[in-house]
Design a protein around this nucleic acid. Structure first.
Lengths: 247, 247
DNA sequence: CCGACGCATTGAGCTAAATCAACAAGGGCG
DNA sequence: CGCCCTTGTTGATTTAGCTCAATGCGTCGG
């Protein structure tokens, strides 16, 4: 684990009074079950903006639930180019890719000062044996990540730049909305380059895409401040997937 | 489940004498544990070439282990375009994406006459509670799929056509090799168009890529017959990811 | 054996996005 | 406050891969 990661001794963790209880691993668990899950989390961990929570190749110790803040996960190609595989916000899980080999496959970097709940994986697996609904939640979480990745493959394989950008903004909007934030106005936590890496485009293409969406009066953007002007218009843009439809 | 799916009543299933035992879900399980897993599989299921094992939206009943044959899984964009999300061969699992919503997110089509072992999911989850190593295997399987998908995102986001094709052929070669087949000579089960859909390219581009690899004497291909002439050369091609490396 | 159909190949031109380049706009810090 | 450095924007040009089109090949059925 990176040296820039700080432990929070002061507060005793408690899923039960966490703001993202209903989005996170404990979803649907009874009070007693949540308490048992709490016992796994020795202490929350703070990660400073720009610091790594873990890096590719580190041995798997814990899965991490994002308590607050924002992360990116990325992998490196053999020649050192970065592919961002996801952005994670509150209530989302980090480290699922490490279960396969007992080593993290990607690097997780905080995009702002963040806080995570470490779930020691061996303990979590043990507890999950006792709590079927916890196991089921974990299964669902992994499956959801698979579905998400497949939809990213669809995006990369079949959408043009503007459609990808629209899909990206809509996805953020929707996830923020689920967390009680505005779906119309929000602040991006990542650079144009990071968006580009995520969507398989160059940063200049992202800028131009933004210009197009602005011209069409679908969104308004100043730097990282986003205002969605026409939600259904954006959705239409994504729906009409590009490649010359054949009927 | 599709009507073209036939049940095999004759043979009692038995993981213990399955050819892909050591690659499939039972990996690392004790004899007794494998026997208990066997009890889940009421009967193997044959799927004819071109038939669907399940379709997007079908309710999740079972995960399926491919016993023999070859499948493709695909999702549809809103405008009806197909993105192939994977090709599955013996010992690989189908249906993991359905756990998330209790409905299959993709459609699984047999690319040749195939046979699968259905694992009723609720029973599998129950059994996994009793058999920690089964649960662990299931977790690993899901995690591995996530890692695989991330490497596909890297491919789509950062590799040019020839590199994608080389990576695809190497991946097939390696998986066939693990199953005791030649890593140098094999037969493709899918059309150029399907390869293209999988790699985010058009079929013509696949053809041209093949021509390039032939010119470079890395592979020889006649129709769907593949001979890899220079394995390390192919690997080099994938390694040297495209986009103008900046030092 | 022949025709038809699906699949594969190859060519020619077009286009969306990459690349290269110049410049603007914040934002943190001395 | 002004400077520097990072991040974002926009323009000009290039190019990889798409589209359209013609042709080849293999196999299946009659």
């Amino acid at each position: 684990m990176s040296s820039q990661v700080l432990h929070v001794h002061a507060l005793k963790t408690a899923c039960s009074n966490c703001s993202v209880l209903e989005l996170c691993l404990p979803i649907g668990l009874t009070g007693g079950e949540v308490e048992r899950l709490d016992t796994l989390i020795a202490q929350r961990v703070k990660v400073k903006k720009g610091a790594a929570l873990y890096r590719t190749g580190d041995p798997l110790r814990s899965l991490y639930a994002v308590r607050l803040g924002f992360f990116k996960t990325s992998i490196l190609s053999t020649d050192g180019r970065e592919q961002i595989t996801g952005f994670q916000m509150q209530g989302e899980m980090l480290g699922l890719d490490a279960i396969s080999t007992d080593h993290y496959a990607c690097t997780a970097i905080a995009l702002e000062d963040s806080e995570v709940c470490p779930l020691p994986f061996t303990l979590l697996e043990k507890l999950a044996r006792d709590l079927p609904s916890l196991q089921h939640n974990l299964n669902k979480l992994m499956s959801r990540e698979i579905v998400r990745d497949h939809s990213m493959l669809l995006l990369m394989g079949n959408m043009n730049a503007d459609e990808r950008l629209a899909a990206f903004l809509l996805n953020l909007s929707q996830r923020l909305n689920m967390r009680g934030y505005s779906s119309r106005e929000f602040v991006l936590r990542m650079s144009r380059e990071a968006i580009g890496s995520y969507l398989g485009l160059r940063l200049e293409t992202i800028c131009r895409g933004i210009a197009h969406l602005r011209e069409e009066e679908l969104v308004d953007m100043h730097g990282r401040n986003v205002t969605i002007l026409d939600l259904s218009g954006l959705k239409q843009k994504v729906a009409g997937c590009h490649r010359h439809s054949e009927q």
